[in-house]
Each structure stands twice: as C-alpha cells, then as structure tokens.
Amino acid sequence: MLEKELIAAARRGNAAEISALLQRGATADARDDTGATALLVATHENNIEAARVLIEAGANVNAKDHIEDSPYLYAGARGHLEILKMTLAHGADLKSTNRYGGTALIPAAERGHVQSVKTLIEVGVAVDHVNRLGWTALLEAIILGSGGDKHTEIIRLLIDAGADVNLGDSEGATPLAHARRRGFGKIERLLAAAGAH
C-alpha cells in the first residue's frame, strides 16, 4: 500500500509526502503496473523536487520499465534537464539504451533538446552510437528534426564533439544526403564545412 501511495505522490510531485512515505518504510524503487519506478513516474511529469527526494533516498536512476525507459533515458529524451543532471550525478549508465537500441543522446538530438544534448556530450555519451534503426544522433536530428535553429545547433554540437559526418544509415545514405533531401541548407553547409560528402 505504501508503494502505491509513493507512486501517486511521485506523479503529483509531492516531495514532502514522498519523504514521509519513505520514512514510514516505502521502498524508494517501488514500481507501478507498467514497471515504472516512483522515480520514473516523477520523471514523466518532470517533478524535479519529487525526483530529488527519491534520488537522495537511493532510487535507481537506471531502473527500466516494461518499455525499456529509465529515469535517466527518459529525462534525456524529453529534455528534463534538471532531472537529467541529477541522474548523471547519481550513477546514470551512459551506455544504457532504450527500446530502439539508442542512447539518451539520440532522442535528445531528434527532439531538439539543445541543453540536454550539450550535457550528454559533456559527460561522454558516445556520439556515433548507432541504434536499431541504423541511425546515429546526427542522422536522427536530420531525418526526424525540423531543420530549424535548435536542430542546426545540435548538429553543430555533434560535429564539434567529433561525430563522424560521413557515417551513413543502414542503406548507406549519409547525413549530407539526408540534409539535402530535406532542403536543410544551414545543416548542409555545416556538414560540408566539416568534411561531409
């Protein structure tokens, strides 16, 4: 019962209630029916203080639910920067992957979360990791991105971090080819300047 209350408090973002429940013996890594821990539930809602209390109580930042999301991976993918930074400070597994076989960096790049991308690059997440779709963060930011300022900045960050600008998708199409196909002129110029062909 305490576990159910803890999950509910995490969903509402009630940090004081979470503290009280933990003191009463609730397990920090209590899970709901989807396999999500209280911390992942708090992360879904971007409830920063709730996440902080749970992490400080020892909640596992790498615990995955039934669809392979963990607090660390979800925070990265959704641009929940404060929670992402907390997970990184508390043992986030930089090599862990989501259900697509991608690191946190790939969906962060795709969704245009500039600060999350910057943070993940700084802590050393592999920039050229290839997911099950055959895409790197660079490819995904072009293929699924908007071509706007945020995605252009992300491409620049990835290039500066040493991303392989000629690493193509599973069919061999390069980032430059994808950028051209989508008419992303700024991204095309950035890639060309970095030696893309």
Rank of each mutant, 00 (worst) to 15 (best):
D69R: 11
D69C: 07
S70N: 04
P71A: 01
Y72R: 05
Y72E: 01
A75Q: 04
G76R: 04
R78V: 05
R78Q: 15
G79T: 01
G79E: 04
L81A: 03
I83C: 00
L84P: 01
L84C: 01
M86T: 00
M86H: 03
T87D: 04
A89D: 06
H90P: 00
H90L: 03
H90S: 03
G91F: 03
G91R: 07
A92W: 01
D93S: 08
L94Y: 05
L94V: 04
S96G: 09
S96W: 01
T97E: 08
N98D: 12
N98V: 00
G101Y: 00
G101H: 02
G102N: 06
G102F: 00
T103Q: 10
T103H: 09
I106W: 05
P107N: 11
P107H: 10
P107A: 09
E110K: 15
E110H: 11
R111Y: 14
R111F: 14
V114Y: 08
Q115K: 15
V117Q: 09
V117F: 11
K118D: 14
K118I: 11
T119R: 12
I121L: 15
I121A: 12
E122V: 04
E122A: 15
V123Y: 08
G124M: 11
V125R: 12
V125T: 14
V127I: 13
D128W: 10
H129S: 14
H129V: 07
H129F: 14
N131P: 07
N131H: 02
R132N: 13
L133P: 00
W135I: 02
W135D: 13
L139P: 00
L139Q: 01
I142F: 11
I142C: 11
I142T: 10
I143D: 03
L144Q: 15
L144R: 15
G145D: 05
G145H: 02
G145M: 04
S146Y: 09
G147R: 10
K150I: 05
E153S: 14
E153D: 13
E153Q: 15
I155R: 14
I155G: 10
R156K: 15
L157D: 03
I159A: 13
I159H: 14
I159G: 13
D160R: 15
D160G: 10
G162F: 12
A163D: 11
D164T: 14
V165C: 10
N166E: 02
L167E: 03
L167M: 06
D169M: 00
A173G: 06
A173R: 10
P175C: 10
L176H: 04
A177K: 07
H178I: 08
H178G: 09
H178R: 11
A179W: 01
R182F: 07
G183I: 03
K186L: 06
I187C: 03
I187Y: 05
E188G: 10
R189N: 13
L191I: 06
L191S: 08
A192C: 05
A193C: 01
A193W: 00
G195S: 05
A196H: 03
H197P: 01
H197L: 06
